[in-house]
Amino acid sequence: MNFKKQFEEGLLTKNPVTVQLLGMCSVLAITTSLFNGLGMGLSVTIILICSNVLISALRKVIPSQIRIAAYIVIIAGFVTIVDLLLKAYLPDLSESLGVFIPLIVVNCIILGRAEGFASKNGVLASAVDGLCQGIGYTVALVIMCVIRELLGSGTFGGGLLNGGEGIRLLPAQFPAMMMVMPVGGFLTLGFVIAGSQWLMARLDRKNRKNRKGGR
């Protein structure tokens, strides 16, 4: 397995959020401050790596008829572990993410990678896949958070920097509340996906031109 290719796929060409369009619920719901986005992204990455490794290790043992149920139980186990750890060590994060931590169980990214990758590949490749997809997910979340937080509350790094207040970039009367409301989630994700499609079309054109030039 080619690490560089997997990384590129996770980050851009097969990004779980902008290309595969998986796990929309958490992407739209919790991306209101940088702290939330990073916390959610890291939690999902950890769960994704663990479940990918375990499912890949057990892929020859689990009968294919009940594999989905088995995957869900494995994933739910890891989600519960992360949920309890967050409650114990990062109660603030656990509070602000709320029900979306247990809802990682039904996040399509994790089940999708289990079914699409870990059930067919070796343990190491699955771990790398989990890491790359998780990083892709985290990056997408962070981009969403930065845009929504800047436009919605006028700050950067809320909950994380400057004693939880965030660094104020826009004066307090300027930001539009709308952007941290549900509407902002839909609009921002629409623009982020449009941006990534534009970027990919550009890269594609460049690659094609390079190939032609080489011949």
Binding site: G185, L189, G190, F191, A194
Partner: peptide, 13 residues
């Protein structure tokens, strides 16, 4: 670049 999913999301917004 807005065709497909992005415009759908904006409509949902």
């Amino acid at each position: 670049c807005f065709q497909g999913f992005p415009i759908t999301l904006i409509a949902a917004g």
